[in-house]
Design a protein around this nucleic acid. Structure first.
Lengths: 229, 229
DNA sequence: CTCGAATATTGCGTGCACGCAAATTTGCGT
DNA sequence: ACGCAAATTTGCGTGCACGCAATATTCGAG
């Protein structure tokens, strides 16, 4: 009763979703992102314009989804797959660096970086990993502290977002200023650096989980005294 | 040349902005959020509808802004105001708990929690503190590691968002399940708990800053070896 | 005081997001 | 195979977001 058989219905939905995002990407590459209306995408995918917005809530979302497709699940799965003795922070870092550095199509990246709207949408897409990641982290932490896991997952997603943002930042033309302006750097380095900042928090949460003192009230007094101010 | 005198112009802009958000809030309380068009708000504020969108990029944003007005600056200022010997994590926690618990109007809160669109907008507004907060944190850390500060600020904002989200979650009707499902809890507790999760990362960054080994390349090799490519 | 550059406001036009209710499709029980 | 209930697609209507170019306002300099 709880798990109704998915069946053919779900499959079709999936197919439509794929058709839409692939059509979106293709058309955007072909005619430039500004010259693609959602009506065009819908038509190319063989559905009504209204249906498009049942699947995506903005014009850019479909294009970006074509590039980032399934990344969230791959990240979650990869994190869960690391052996238990590996530090959570290391598992996360390695996984994320890997997933965000995988062979990307040059044209696709250019397409996204060129259009401000697409850049924004791409950054927003980083938040997509939050939920799967929270689940994966929660599992690694023993499944007790859902709230803590959510905070960590969200923070990780936020850190990734900042790294991407920095990376996408169009290098200011002059660059003539004094010392190195800690300019954009490579994406793997940026990701590692961003996650390294959060590593201590991940370590602490892991430590907590390994030494489960009091099970109850977890989340209201996590790792720190909090006397009334 | 770099700092042109602000003058009267800026003042008027500020006034328009205030007029718009106050009109928005008033109308929303009066007629319900669903029955307020941006044209109404614009008219009530004495500007053209088009101008509304020069100040706010969604209908909800103005309403929410009326409630969260200036919070970002207050947070940043308050963080900066703590004496230097106080742990960054403590300063942040105390400040944020204070700022998010200050006397809130009952009607306003109800208005926001009642409408899904407004709830979402309210959560998004938490991201507003990112930039000022990054600046404040950067100052406390010695002004060297802009990137690290940004990561921390964004993570803090993300944590606050999760806390608010949890707090706003409509408690599921039954609630009959076994032990306490770490149910919604009080907002201060949620905020403290969320920030406690990040505290170790803040501590580490502070420690780093206090013991400034190599000044350069900060941000690309922060707290961790990153061999490899 | 007056001019001119910088900046803000406005109107217009276009495409977009989405609530709603009707029509269509799917999947299961009989 | 039949038909009903649930889920999906679709069309329509409304309000919204925003690029663009024209217009109005501000402000400093001469």
């Amino acid at each position: 009763m709880t798990t109704r058989r998915p069946g053919l219905r779900e499959e079709k939905k999936q197919a439509t979703q794929v058709a839409l995002r692939e059509a979106a990407l293709r058309l955007a590459l072909e005619h430039g992102p500004a010259n693609v209306r959602v009506d065009d995408i819908a038509e190319a995918a063989g559905v009504s314009p209204r249906t498009y917005n049942n699947y995506f809530s903005s014009r850019e979302q479909a294009i970006v989804a074509a590039v980032t497709a399934e990344r969230e699940h791959r990240v979650a799965a990869a994190v869960a797959a690391w052996p238990a003795h590996v530090r959570l922070a290391d598992a996360l870092t390695a996984t994320i660096v890997e997933q965000y550095t995988e062979p990307r199509d040059r044209d696709e990246l250019l397409l996204i970086t060129a259009s401000p709207a697409l850049r924004d949408s791409y950054l927003d897409a980083a938040a997509t990993i939050e939920h799967p990641l929270a689940t994966a982290i929660d599992q690694r932490l023993g499944g007790t502290g859902t709230f803590t896991s959510r905070v960590l997952a969200t923070s990780v997603a936020a850190a990734v977002r900042v790294a991407l943002q920095q990376w996408l930042q169009p290098p200011p033309a002059p660059l003539a200023t004094s010392g190195l302006l800690l300019l954009s750097g490579s994406l793997p380095d940026l990701l590692r650096s961003a996650l390294a900042t959060l590593a201590p928090a991940l370590d602490a949460a892991e430590e907590q989980a390994r030494r489960p003192t009091s099970r109850q009230v977890r989340g209201a007094a996590d790792g720190q005294e909090m006397t009334g101010f």
